[in-house]
Amino acid sequence: MKFLVYIETDSGDVVASSWEALGAALSLSDDVEAVIIGDKISVGVEDVVKRGAQKVYVVEDETRQLFDLERHLADVKNVLDMSGADAFLASHTSNGRDLAAALGADKTAGVIADALELSVDGDKLKGVRGVYSGNILVDVTVDGSPQIATLRPRAFAAAEDTGASADVVLVDPANVDSPYEVLGVERTETGEVSLTEASVIVSGGRGVAKDPELGFDLIRELAGLLGAAVGASRAAVDAGFISYDHQVGQTGKVVRPDLYIAAGISGAVQHLAGMGSSKVIVAINKDAEAPIFSVANYGIVGDLFEVVPAMSEAVREKLGK
């Protein structure tokens, strides 16, 4: 099966989970091509070329600096025609999701959305995904051409730099009018690790309530030492302790880190819906009966205002930071 993998860029930089989509394709086929669309992406192009795809289609244009559903979709359709790929893969980011859904709609093709596993069965892709907020798993196949799948960030191993080289094909940007006019761009988490891409997350809940500012300062300090992202429960967000973009759970972000540290979070099912598939879960809670302990691998029953700084201290000592 021949794959075309979408390498997403944002203001010139490759979105890291794109490498996972490329890695998934390379693990399934020897016949893998990639398409990268953006503006000022020479560094990204050099990077793709080394990661094992045979051919890399490049669409570079000022109008492609930010993702634009109309333009990027038209470019992808052009490249699909040139490549003749049987399957199209993207990471299940907001933009990847939108692009794949639109491509599926236009081609009357189904999408295996947010796949956790992927395999090839004859001329079809077969995915495994979660439904009912991860409480049920299903096998998914789709009709149509190309076979389309988006992949859950952090569920697949990223393609590495193998020192390989690929043919680079420069493609003219598709000549389409976009109905979208971007009037402003603001970066919300500058300098912070993104939750969906993080391998370690430290989250705080209503347990910080007696001094929310200090509580999240302590959580940020530990996160900083671990190179971790900062998460939160809905109760912490709704109380105004931290902004919504940090919310993990049913109506927040779904995350999949190697390590999730929940401090002062009870472990409601809606919170678990967002972090239940973390590899290792650590609970810090002063209530030994809190439900979070029934999904945690490690725990400390205690006051987070004492335990979290003690963890920072231990990390400093043991990792020499």
Binding site: A109, G110, G134, N135, I136, L137, N297, Y298
Partner: peptide, 18 residues
């Protein structure tokens, strides 16, 4: 155009908290 089969529970978290 999307076909789902083999509905199942995900493997239980093997979590005996330490």
């Amino acid at each position: 155009v999307v076909h789902m089969t083999n509905f199942r529970k995900p493997p239980a978290r093997d979590a005996k908290v330490q």
